[in-house]
Design a protein around this nucleic acid. Structure first.
Lengths: 215, 215
DNA sequence: GTCTATAGCAAGATAGAC
DNA sequence: GTCTATCTTGCTATAGAC
């Protein structure tokens, strides 16, 4: 579950590994900043926003709580970065997965790719994304407002995908595109509450949702 | 969303209204206790467990925080009562709704009744149930342990229902009963995060889930 | 950049008056 | 039963040394 964001000027498309050799050797402050973000994402995911203190984060980074303020202006700003990265990452993962199928791919395959990418990012790839999903509802309103645009951007992918699917008669009969979107994402996001990475098999949920909602 | 539990010796089956005339005029302490539980359920639902202080609860009841300790030993015990009532209530609602169909009812109708009862209880009927769903993941481990049996009891209903459905070939093709259970309950529980009681129509989600998972 | 030290505040909880 | 008053603890955040 450990992950480090090595963000070069701009991370675009999918990069297979967070690669060791980036443009420039990162400055020390940047390393600390990334460590803090990584630890914060992990703790926000595991415990929640309010339940995670800056002392907790500092302790895992190997730093006193006060030192975090050299890198972030407040807990809220730290959380804003974590949660923003979380949406961006799942957004990129889903967009890339669907795009990788090429323009002529059947709707069922596109939906399966989107479901798979969302779930994989949420459960396995990114503590940032899971932190976003688990914490967003409990975060202060000012933070919600900051994130709303990025969230809408991500939602738009799904809306378009399912509208296309509905138009192509690729959804199971009697299923509305918008309600399907909410149901699918609900089933996926809620898996955070029950999925056991040891015994679990994300593929089963993917297969079941595809079987249920597409034809 | 306001609700008061008027629990006579035992609440069994479904009672249409929480009826004004109960067995005995309730004592004053009982009235306060119920008010506290109602307010706590409402705030836990709206804000979350950690985000709700005893001062908040007291203020809405018209009482100082310290006075709550006459009725409850701790915040955790208060939350334990709220969350336990929450599962019990959705358990009763689903069990009654399915039972009301009679023994010969088709599986599709039984599943629809269960989905409908769960969703109605969660979104409309009971702040206790929605408080449970929203707070459980963030509550202290000792509280989780206290609730685990009641949760398993409720889960068992769904497991049985979907196993029966699978045996009767009433599930859509390619769908496993256990995964369907997790997907359906995930989609339902997550609706707390997006459902708007003003413009919303729970029926659409019910219809979509039935269409997706049954045949 | 990170530390120590601490300000300032809000939380859960308790004691005793009424 | 509820209040006032307060204890203790833990939090976010700041100031200044190093």
């Amino acid at each position: 579950m450990a992950e480090t964001i090595t963000r070069s000027p701009r991370t675009r498309g999918l990069r297979t590994r967070p690669s060791a050799a980036e443009d420039r050797p990162p400055k020390r402050a940047e390393v600390s900043r990334q460590q803090i973000l990584d630890v914060a994402a992990s703790l926000f995911r595991a415990r929640g926003y309010t339940e995670t203190s800056l002392r907790d984060i500092g302790a895992q980074v190997g730093m006193k709580a006060g030192s975090l303020y050299y890198h972030f202006a407040s807990k809220e700003e730290l959380a804003a970065d974590v949660l923003r990265i979380g949406v961006e990452r799942v957004h990129e993962a889903v967009a890339s997965a669907v795009a990788a199928l090429g323009p002529g791919a059947p709707m069922k395959a596109r939906i399966e790719a989107a479901i798979s990418a969302h779930l994989e990012t949420l459960l396995v790839e990114s503590d940032y994304t899971s932190a976003h999903i688990r914490c967003f509802p409990y975060v202060p309103p000012s933070l919600k407002a900051q994130l709303s645009q990025a969230r809408r951007d991500y939602e738009a992918i799904w809306r378009r995908l399912l509208d296309e699917a509905a138009a192509a008669k690729a959804l199971a009969p009697g299923i509305d595109a918008e309600v399907a979107r909410l149901a699918i994402l609900g089933a996926l996001n809620w898996s955070l509450e029950w999925f056991d990475p040891v015994r679990g098999r994300p593929e089963e949920l993917i297969r079941t949702l595809v079987a249920a909602f597409t034809r």
